[in-house]
Each structure stands twice: as C-alpha cells, then as structure tokens.
Design a protein around this nucleic acid. Structure first.
Length: 872
RNA sequence: GCGGACGUGGCGGAACUGGUAGACGCAAGGGACUUAAAAUCCCUCAGCCUCGGCUAUGCGGGUUCGAUCCCCGCCGUCCGCACCA
C-alpha cells in the first residue's frame, strides 16, 4: 500500500502546539516522583541560533525525554545569558539600545528553539538582564560582602584597550582579549574581587569527588588552581648590604631540599626590597623601569629574554653564617605569585641554570641520579630535575629529596628570625581572586555607594534593585554610567550626605554562575528557595562546550560554595554529571574573491575526486579544510534552513548519528540527506503496515519466526536505554538502525497480509518499542507514527517499556573456534552446555581435526559464552 | 618546555576494557522497477593472491593460548597551561 511521504512542515508545528497545550514539560516542584535536573549551558542571545546550539540542545532534550519516560520528574529549563559587550557594540554601531537589541534577539532565538521541538519548561524562562534576575544577583553580592567574600583592592589588572575594560586572567588568551582580540595591557586599578582563593583548597580537593565529570576538565581545573606545597624561607640580609630598615628576604620554594645548591636570590622588579635598593642605584632603577615597561604587554612577557641585575644586597645562608649570596632583580619573577622572591638553584632548574650561566654564578649539583658518582656528577647545560640522591649538601647527603625537604623544613622551623621561624611550610595556589569589575553599561550594577565620610557602603537590600538607567548614550568609548548626568548621584545610606554610586558593573560570568540555582524557583523574592534548590541540585546532567572547562565551571563551583555560606542552598557542587560536547565543523570553500558559503556552491564527483563550483556562474571553487563553523570562514549552515527543508527531527537525528557526542561532528549535506531518508523510512515502515498492525494485540513471541522479531526488539530496547544513559547517542542510533533493518522484511509481509497472528502481535510490540525508542530523538515523527497505529495519548507522555530478560538471551550460542589464536570455524551449541561438552564438540569439528592431523591438542581454552581456542 | 588525549577501510565510527576486527551510517560500483528521472528495493564494498589462504587497528619490540585493548621504545595529530619558584 502506498502512503504519502511524511511531511515535517505540517507535523512538527502541530505537535509542538499539542505538547504546549498539554503543559507536558512544565515541571512542578512538589511532584513526588524522583527528580532529575538536566541542563544545557544557556545561550548568549547573539541574534540567531547556530548548529552548535542545535547539537547541544538536542543532546539535552534526548536525556530529558528519556528520563521523563523512565518516570522521573524532569526539570529542563531554558534562559538567556543576556548581558555583555556585543549589545553595547550593536548600540554603538547601529544606534539600537542594548536592551531592545537583546530582547529582540531573545524573541527570535526563542522561536527558533521552539521549532526544534525541545521539551523545555518555558514557564521558568528568564534572561540575566531581567531586572528580576539581577536584583537577586545584587542581593547575593551584598550577602557575599557580609560574609567577607568580596574585597576591593588595587592590583595589576588586564586592561583591554579596545573594549576599554578590565578582563579576568581567564579572559586573556595568548595575551589578547578573548572578545576584542586586542593586545592586553597591565594597569594598576582599584577593583572589586570575589575571594575565590578562600576556597582554593576545597575547589581543588573536591574535584576528586566529581566522578561524573570528564577527567580532562578536572585536570584542567586542578592545573588552573595550581596547588603546590613548599616552604617560606626567611633569609637574613648580610649586614652592611641591607637597605635601611630591611633585615630579611622572604622567598617561597617547593624545593627546600636544594638549599645547598642555591647560588643567588631573584626578586621581582615590584618587590619592596628592589625599590629600596634602586633608590641610590640609578642603573638598577632604569633596569626595573625596563622590566615594568616590558610587562605592559602579556605577549612581550612570554618571549622576553631572562635578564637580571645585581642589587648589591647579599643574604646569609640559613645553615652557614659565613656563606652569603647575591640578590638580583630578575624580569622573570612575578610579584603576584608567592612572595615575589625566589632562591635560584641552577643545578635543579633550567631557568635558574640559564640565568647562572649568563651571570657567571656557581652551579653546584645537589641531586644526582640514584647510583651515580657524586665525585664526578656535573651539571653544565641541562639541569637535573628528576628524583635521586642528595649530594654536596652536608647533613642532607645520601637522603632522598623528599626526606631532605622535610629535614630542611623541620630544622628551619626551629630557628627564629625576628619573632618568626626561619622556615614555614606553606601551601601556595596559582589561582588568584576573581576580579569582577567591568567598566561597562550592559551588566549587573555593583550595588555599592562611595561616601566621602563613610567610605564604601553597601546599598541596603530594601533599596534594591539598583536599576540600569535607560537613557544612555553610546557615542563615545568608555562607560556610559560614568558620564550619566544623574544616575550616580545618591544619598549615602549611612549618613545621608551626597555620595556616588559604584559605576562598575559585574563580569557577565557572575550572571551565569548561579542561573542553574535560580531555575529551581525563578519566582522567589529571595535569590533561591533553599528547599527547592536543595531538592533539585546538583544538576544531574549538565551539557555544554569544553571551552567553559575552566571559567564558567570554576566560577559556578565557587558561587555554589559562597551561596551555601550565605544560606541560599546547602550543597557545594552545582553539577553532578558534566558532559562536554564537541563542535559542529564543516568544509570550507574558497573562491577567487574569498570564502564562499555552502549554499552558493555545488559539488560534483568525477574520477573519485570531489570538485566544487559556484552555482551562479560555474567558477571553480577550492575545497578547503574542515573547520569550526564561523561567520568569517562562511562555512555556516543555518538551522532555520535545515528545519525548513528537512524538519527538526532530521536535524536532531543527524546531530546524534555517527560521531561520538564528545567529538566534533562534521556537518555534510550527504549526511543530512541520509538522516532524512531514515525519517522517511521509519514513516513508510510504519504507515504501510499500520492497517495490519493497528488492531493487533502487542505481544512478544518466544518461539518461531516471531521470536526473531521480539528478540531483536528487546535486545535493542536494552541497548538503547543503556546507551542513552551513557550519552552514547551514536551507538543508540546504530541499534535503532539495526532494529529497523530487522523489522523491514516481516513488516512488508504483514502489510501484504502474509504474516501469522503471532507475527503480527510480535511486530506490533516491536513497533511500539521502536516508536518509544525514537521518541527522545525524533519526537514529532514518533507522535505521528503513534497516531498512525491508532495509539492512545501522546508518545511524549508514555513510559519507557521494560525489556524481557528472557528475550535477550539466546538458547543457542555460536562460539568462534580458534586454532592457535586464529579463527578457523564456528560452533553452534546449547547456551547451557558445560565446558567439557563445548571442548568435545569443538575438537570434533572438521577444521579442528584437520589442523590437529591426528595429534592431540596441547591445550584447549574454553571461555564460557565467548570463545574456544585450540592450541595445537 | 610541562601536562593530557588520540592514531582502526575511501569517510564518520563500532568492538561488552584481553576473546570472531570493521557493527551502524555515509560515499562508491553493479542490478531491479520506470518511457525517463526521483524515490524505493536487491547485491558488492580493508588489501593481496592460484575460492583456500595470507596480510592488516600509526611504526618497532614484549607479555599472553589469544592484543585495537596491557607493557617498553619511536613517529604523527590535536588540546590545555605556559617564566607559578
């Protein structure tokens, strides 16, 4: 029977409407079923969704629909990461207000997302630029101030000269601003900071418990936090060389064991001791000025030659009062890390060795490889950094470096200098506090007031929100809030005198650091409803791009801890399961006038070679490398176009097929067509036999031909459930293809009326299973098929069936039979045959007999349910 | 430089972490149906030779009855961090 082709253009909007009207995806907090929170990283409203969004949200939707079918109360919300620079850029370029631009984009993108058929709870939607949202963010800020988690300090900051704003370390990539691409400069400014370093230890330690996170991400975070264990050592300054008022130099080292290999001290150009030493040494002052100027560009820092200059100051060795060492100012020592001072042990550190060789400083090897000869072991060009045995180190000689570390630490802890011990064990972190001040308009205002008399005062909660003024101008660079005629003038909440508002706004990463918590009760007056937050959080499955491995995920982990301190929730980790999906990539095409979009060309194949040419006039086009879809390379495919021509289900199915979700997926026209063929094939398979199956009882068969169908269906059901549970969508897709291949023949027979009653019943059951299995991935098609079969209700509301364990085991099993590890025959035998029986049967096989040639085998290995190997 | 991941047909990728290498899809070739096309269906599809084999999971070794999987040494690709003391 011929049926019409499936028409997604008609079906998809129909079902989207039906789901909406039934409020199927609106989640209630008091629903007693087990809770499951699945969240995809919310999008920045740039204007239109792109294929990366399609992939991300499809994966999340499959998880959401699957968990719903498994009987969970699923929370699957969506919102908008809506503050940020592009809105201001648009305002400057197109004279649109950032607010209007942002909300227009949100409207467009919401419509696009809805056309994908995502099972989202739109009733909880918000944008971070909603006053309702940033109002609560300001409440959180004030709570954090009260808990001592916010500081204001002057520090060297990354200044983006193009965006005219400060950037966090995490936002500087290769010395350039992550958005503007401009070379970042170092400037000294007073800034607001979140004290993320208060949690450095816990943020590092707790990574261990995140067993549903990719190892890669945990490693990146661990490295970023950069915990190291070392020793503070206070070196006395040698009398006569110390500047007035100075008596010691404090250094931080992770290698106190190498203290007898020390040959110089190196301090930062910003170190107080350096500044004092420079006071009457003009050449030193000039050198330090040089170093500082070099520091204005991060890029210059990275390539700069290692240079230093002797300060004339000398320090006394802690274990030998007759041994003094010179103190250099060196351009590679950072004031921001440790104490801004180090001791150099050239034999154990390549950088120190290069420095020592350059300035003629002694190189004394103090660690040599185990079994080496201390008398002859030398270090000249290459430092020895591995484990070994201590040498040339007096009382440490013969020890392992770790024991020497402890010995030095213990001894120095006993010696006093000033009122303090000469050595002090210290854990140091690379992580710095999170600078959140941005000199921008389109962000959450920092709710603080500067009063000449009272200092910096928090805006009382009753006076919140501090709203962004609407009447702003973008005709000049810089912060429009700063030059607004009235906005910043306010009475001091403490004394009532004229005072000024803080005009910095918050880094947009603040906005995304707690949105997942807000979704649990977006209607609340307080930032959260702690009960709801504790019940829903942590997010069971969080899905997004690897590019947020450090920034967003680390900030969110900090925020969750900070919110716990402020009583807004009672957990530490926001995301239980994390999945980082790969990018969507596409071929690039280059013509004589630059990059060309995929829709402008056609591709033909001749002699096994693919050739591209321009559709308009046939100009040959060069097929370039496969790269991430980007506007600049013009290798983008618009989701709207795909959905309009093939439908959302095709786009979703393609996104899930073939490529493992954590890897990049190559978007190809042929692949999309393949996906679309399958959509049509499923429809044909079911609609052609719908009449035959509609009246049938769904019932599995354990015997005969029908059992083949039932077994295939139940095996697929088991595998697909497990695969989706592991987010192995590509494997689930393959299993579904397999099942439909198996069903194809019997379904055609049934449609032709040539199938037995048992077979029709088995097919009906198998098709019911197939429909439920495709439903998370191709939800519209599933509904349409369900209607064709006369099913009741909607598939989106149907439970995931349970597989029958009896149907997934076979009574007979086929063993591959190997001879000396190479497969030579098959042996089909009863599943429950014991090892001896299997062995005998295998040896009786003709191929085995032939190979043995009358001799008895040396060994026969029978692995139950697996394999037989005969060793001849 | 340091750290990490990965190398399987023409392509994307499977293979229960030691047990039949290449599931499933894409592309390609052949055939059927059709006046023709599209759609659909069937067959072939790692390589090499003498229809039975041999060689094949980046390369070279090793452990094992058996290795894509474990160990050692190379080569290559990608990613992260980068003066962190």
């Amino acid at each position: 029977m011929a049926t019409e082709r499936y028409n997604p253009r008609a079906s998809e909007p129909k079902w989207q409407k039906a789901w909406g009207e039934a409020k199927l995806f609106e989640t209630k907090n008091d629903d007693p079923r087990p809770k499951y929170y699945v969240l995809e990283m919310f999008p920045y409203p740039s204007g239109r969704i792109h294929m990366g969004h399609v992939r991300n949200y499809t994966m999340g939707d499959v998880v959401a629909r699957y968990r719903r079918a498994m009987g969970c109360n699923v929370l699957h919300p969506m919102g908008w990461d809506a503050f940020g620079m592009p809105a201001e850029n648009a305002a400057m370029q197109n004279k649109v207000h950032p607010k209007a631009w942002t909300y227009q984009n949100i409207d467009t993108m919401r419509t696009q997302l809805k056309s994908m058929g995502l099972s989202l709870d739109w009733s909880r939607e918000f944008a971070t630029c909603d006053v309702d949202y940033y109002h609560r963010q300001q409440m959180l800020f004030i709570d954090f101030v009260e808990k001592g988690l916010v500081t204001r300090k002057s520090s060297k900051v990354n200044w983006d000269p193009e965006d005219m704003t400060v950037l966090a370390n995490e936002q500087v990539i290769d010395g350039r601003g992550w958005r503007s691409g401009a070379l970042v400069e170092q400037r000294e400014l007073t800034q607001w900071f979140f004290k993320i370093t208060d949690f450095a230890q816990d943020l590092s330690d707790a990574l261990e418990g995140l067993d549903e996170w990719p190892e890669k991400v945990k490693l990146m975070q661990r490295n970023w936090i950069g915990r190291s264990e070392g020793l503070l050592i206070r070196w006395p300054l040698a009398a006569g060389t110390a500047p007035a008022g100075e008596s010691e130099l404090e250094v931080y080292t992770t290698r106190p064991d190498t203290i007898f290999g020390a040959s110089f001290m190196a301090i930062s150009a910003d170190h107080p001791l350096a500044k004092k030493a420079a006071e009457n040494k003009p050449e030193l002052a000039a050198f330090m000025e040089d170093v500082r100027r070099m520091g204005t560009s991060v890029a210059a820092l990275e390539t700069a030659e290692k240079k230093g200059m002797d300060t004339g100051i000398r320090v006394v060795h802690p274990f030998d009062e007759n041994w003094t060492l010179p103190v250099y100012v060196a351009n590679f020592v950072l004031m921001e890390y440790g104490t801004g001072a180090i001791f150099g042990c050239p034999s154990g550190d390549q950088r120190d060795l290069d420095f020592a060789n350059k300035y003629g400083l002694p190189v004394v090897p103090v660690v040599m490889p185990e079994g080496g000869d201390a008398a002859t072991f030398q270090v000249t060009e290459e430092a020895y950094t591995d484990d070994g045995v201590m040498i040339n180190s007096r009382f440490l000689d013969g020890m392992k470096p770790t024991d020497a570390f402890n010995d030095v630490a213990n001894r120095l802890e006993q010696i006093s200098i000033g009122n303090r011990p000469m050595g002090e064990r210290k854990v140091q972190f690379r992580l710095r506090d999170w600078g959140i001040s941005r000199q921008r308009y389109w962000g959450c205002p920092i709710p603080m007031i500067h009063c000449d008399d009272c200092g910096v005062v928090a805006v009382p909660k009753a006076d919140l929100p501090v709203k962004l003024p609407d009447d702003v101008e973008f005709d000049r660079p810089g912060n429009p809030l700063d030059r607004h005629p009235t906005w910043r003038h306010v009475a001091c909440p403490k004394c009532g005198k004229d005072a000024r508002r803080e005009t910095d706004t918050m880094d947009t990463f603040v906005d995304s650091s707690w949105y997942f918590a807000r979704f649990t009760a977006p209607w609340e007056n307080e930032p959260t409803d702690p009960k709801a937050a504790n019940e829903w959080l942590p997010v069971d499955q969080y899905i997004g791009g690897i590019e947020h491995a450090i920034l967003h995920l680390l900030y969110s982990r900090f925020f969750t801890r900070a919110m716990r301190e402020a009583g807004h929730l009672n957990i530490a980790e926001p995301f239980k399961g994390l999945f980082t999906q790969g990018m969507v990539v596409h071929e690039t095409y280059k013509g004589p006038n630059g990059w060309v979009t995929p829709v402008e060309i056609k591709i033909e194949e001749a002699d096994g070679k693919r050739r591209a040419s321009l559709l308009s006039d046939g100009t040959p086009i060069e097929i370039g490398s496969i790269e991430k879809m980007s506007k600049s390379k013009k290798n983008v495919v618009d989701p709207d176009d795909i959905i309009a021509s093939y439908g959302a289900d095709t786009a979703r199915w393609f996104m899930l097929s073939d490529s493992p979700p954590e890897r990049d997926v190559i978007w190809t026209e042929a692949g999309v067509e393949g996906a679309h063929r399958f959509v049509q094939r499923v429809w044909r398979l079911i609609s052609e036999s719908a009449d035959a199956l509609a009246k049938a009882d769904a019932e599995a068969s354990a015997e005969g031909d029908a059992a083949v169908v039932s077994k295939a269906a139940h095996k697929a059901l088991k595998a697909v459930g497990e695969d989706i549970g592991k987010l192995a969508f590509n494997k689930a897709v393959a299993r579904i293809y397999e099942l439909s291949n198996t069903l194809q023949g019997p379904m055609a027979d049934a449609a032709a009326g040539k199938a037995s009653t048992e077979m029709v019943s088995a097919l009906r059951e198998a098709v019911d299973i197939l429909i439920v299995m495709i439903a998370p991935m191709m939800p519209h098609l599933a509904e349409e098929c369900w209607v064709a079969l006369g099913g009741q209700g909607m598939v989106a509301d149907r439970p995931w069936p349970k597989f029958d364990p009896a149907l997934i085991v076979d009574n007979e099993i086929t063993y591959p039979v190997q001879i000396n590890g190479k497969k030579r025959a098959d042996l089909t035998i009863a599943r429950d045959a014991d090892q001896l029986t299997v062995e005998k049967a295998a040896l009786a096989l003709e191929a085995v007999q032939k190979a043995l040639d009358g001799k008895s085998p040396r060994k026969v290995i029978v692995v139950p349910q697996r394999i037989v190997n005969v060793v001849a």
